[in-house]
């Protein structure tokens, strides 16, 4: 099988290598930092006014070292680190002791996935189709109008834009709630009131992502289309009297989408890093905020856990893209 030998295996090796190197970096970087996380931790506890007996401190140092995986030589730590990873064990969070990292990531992940997946699934087709048509019909008035809107929206810093949405649709016209993933105190259950509540809370964050992401896709696509439009296969189709809707769809947009597919895979992969600013502005639960707090608190296990997720997420997205791409572009074949 040529496909397996010449296409699949090299890409799988590359995939595993990227993950291996990324995770190794996640292991090494914290160890190169000048501060000792165990002492920092104990210092923090003492600063909070906790009374610690000298003996208790020693015991705590040992158990903290164990939890951090800081016992033994680097090599021993490294081997133990991989051992835990393979068991899917990222240890416990320090600042929400004794909650496990898995549990915290598991709680934040559905929010992030739900929000970012929905936003991407809407803004990518929307931005690209409108951008594609606007690029092809760039002389039409409607195309110029959409283009102007995108030109105004696009350069806005995202947080300002998101705040503006919040102010307008949350405070000035209070159609949507201003914070949170649900009403305070709601128990998550699979029933209509809960779903409705979640949708209402997710609407503004999703809208902000759709508009800005859509504007970016729109502008990129419009530019690509104008280049594809000058390609000789488009000119030739026009000289062959091919009808315009075929030329727009099957010649121009179809080819212009190829680079955009790569962009889609990358943004899907990045979902696993969360959307920090969105989550902050809309006080929305999710991976971004979790990672942010982990960094602020020096919660190393949690940082490592989330980072490993996002490394695997991006690498997997690229692998899937690589495997599927030949379906979109026959010039790239499984040979």
């Amino acid at each position: 099988m040529n496909f397996v030998k010449r296409y699949l295996i090299p890409r799988l090796i590359q995939y595993l290598l990227v993950i291996f190197l990324g995770i190794t970096a996640v292991f090494i970087i914290p160890r190169l930092l000048p501060n000792d996380p165990v002492n920092t931790m104990i210092g923090v506890m003492q600063a909070r006014g906790q009374q610690l007996e000298p003996g208790a401190i020693d015991g705590m140092v040992t158990s903290l070292k164990e939890m951090y995986g800081l016992e033994g030589s680097w090599w021993e730590q490294y081997v133990a680190f991989w051992g835990r990873l393979f068991r899917g064990d990222f240890g416990v969070s320090f600042f929400q002791f004794p909650t496990t990292v898995n549990e915290m990531v598991g709680r934040a992940m559905p929010w992030t996935l739900g929000l970012l997946l929905t936003a991407t699934v809407i803004n990518w087709p929307l931005g690209n189709i409108v951008g594609g048509l606007a690029g092809y019909y760039s002389r039409k008035p409607w195309s110029r109008v959409v283009d102007t809107i995108a030109m105004i929206v696009r350069p806005q810093p995202y947080y300002i834009f998101a705040f503006a949405l919040l102010l307008i649709l949350g405070y000035a016209i209070p159609w949507f709630p201003v914070a949170g993933g649900t009403e305070i105190g709601r128990k998550i259950a699979f029933n209509w009131p809960t779903i409705k509540d979640i949708l209402r809370h997710s609407f503004l964050p999703a809208l902000s992502l759709v508009i800005l992401g859509g504007a970016i896709n729109f502008q990129t696509m419009k530019l690509i289309v104008q280049n594809v439009n000058a390609e000789s296969f488009v000119q030739y189709a026009k000289l062959g009297g091919v009808t315009e809707n075929r030329i727009v769809g099957r010649y121009v947009i179809r080819n212009a989408l190829l680079p955009q597919i790569t962009g889609l895979a990358l943004s899907l992969g990045q979902i696993f890093s969360g959307a920090l600013i969105t989550e902050i502005v809309f006080s929305y639960p999710g991976l971004g905020g979790l990672l942010f707090n982990a960094i602020v608190n020096g919660d190393y296990n949690l940082i490592m856990g989330i980072t490993v997720f996002s490394i695997v997420g991006i690498a997997t997205a690229i692998l899937i893209l690589d495997l599927l791409y030949p379906l979109f572009d026959p010039r790239v074949r499984y040979t």
Binding site: E231, S232, A237, G240, G241, R246, R250, R254, L258, P330
Partner: peptide
């Protein structure tokens, strides 16, 4: 009246099989 281009690499749509190109060119007429 029909046009014969210089048949260099790029006059045929790279993502379509030739029968699709035929379908577009002939089906349009």
């Amino acid at each position: 009246i029909s046009y014969i281009p210089q048949g260099s690499m790029s006059v045929l749509n790279p993502v379509l099989k030739l029968k699709e190109t035929y379908k577009d060119f002939i089906g349009s007429h």
